[in-house]
Write a protein that binds this DNA or RNA. Sequence first.
DNA 1: AGGTGTATGTCGCAT
DNA 2: ATGCGACGTACACCT
Lengths: 219, 219
Amino acid sequence: MRLVIARCSVTYEGRLTAYLPSAIRLLMVKADGCVAVHADGGAYKPLNWMNAPNHLEESDGSWVVTNTKGERLEIEIEEVLHEFDHSMGLDPGLQKDGVEAHLQVLLAERPEEIEAGLRLIRREYPTDIGPVDLLCEDGEGNTVAVEIKRNGGIDGVEQLARYVERLDRDPRLQPVRGIFVAQSITPQAKTLAESRAVGCVEVDYDALRGIESSVPTLF
Amino acid sequence: MRLVIARCSVTYEGRLTAYLPSAIRLLMVKADGCVAVHADGGAYKPLNWMNAPNHLEESDGSWVVTNTKGERLEIEIEEVLHEFDHSMGLDPGLQKDGVEAHLQVLLAERPEEIEAGLRLIRREYPTDIGPVDLLCEDGEGNTVAVEIKRNGGIDGVEQLARYVERLDRDPRLQPVRGIFVAQSITPQAKTLAESRAVGCVEVDYDALRGIESSVPTLF
DNA sequence: AGGTGTATGTCGCAT
DNA sequence: ATGCGACGTACACCT
């Protein structure tokens, strides 16, 4: 990784056009060739960047980075204040645990936490517009499609409504109803769910996790 | 901005749990206090991070970053290979051109580029579920709601369909139809648009821009 | 503070 | 490659 602190101005032309007036910034060039221009603030997102693969042409006082999509990043370097290069080797990568996928596993094991009498038919049940998180059967033998989100918004309700509409055309499944399950559901989403005849259930991830504390975690 | 290259392992506990085994990485601490852990590859996104505001507690061989939301980033530092600090001053910030907002302005000036005879009633016409990009009237005096996207996907069609449904309840406006406008529209979105009786128009941003070349650009 | 919509989103997975 | 959904999305804007 190459790190350069320099006074520079930057122009990007590609998916949009953007211009960065002269100031002191960090230029970061990673081993894969990607280039990022960082200011000294504003979270982790750089002001400007060009992902790999690209081509970096370095001439006196200017870097020009281009890629095959016709995007172009030009950095005019007025003054280099510090420069450093260090090889790092491959990164072993990140191990994650605990997002929507885990919530889905927990609820697949205990569908009765969603609604009494609910029984799992299949997880990730495929339809021609994408997989339904859980396909279940209720106490009366009717099909129930379950969409699981961490944060329940309007989008999730629409997504579920599309699945239900699709599944309900299958004579082996119909009638099909939907239940929208999330840790929290916005009032707007609840309103939309009502008008789409979709049920809403809020679940407590930590409590569910507590129930199945016997299962070993990732690490 | 403080830059440290170190062999370290990292644990994050917060919205999820994540673990990063020992390797050489770049630790970046910006003036606003945000911390990022970068590997030497993989676009601009850090492996792990903690945005400002936070609290960084630095002890021998370990950094603990916490925030008020109960998130916690712990960096175990085994070996520091390089360290550097440089003040940069405030950044003048980025000037952008060519995002959805600009496309909306261009089309508001020339609605006939969307459909012959189309006339603008209002930009950002408010409804109780959000603003419609353009509200227009067609050659026959019927109301047309226009949703503009750079990249047209299913979501945009759904969004427009919601607006049309809402607007069509207003006796002063009905009947209302929708036109989905984007630089490119996915086949799935076109199919969905058809089943929602929504029109689709693909526009060329550069061409539109050329038409109004008299208007001065941002820079 | 919370909800909604945008993003040069990025990233991963399936087609 | 492209489409599609998830993301510790971040971020601006508005209520």
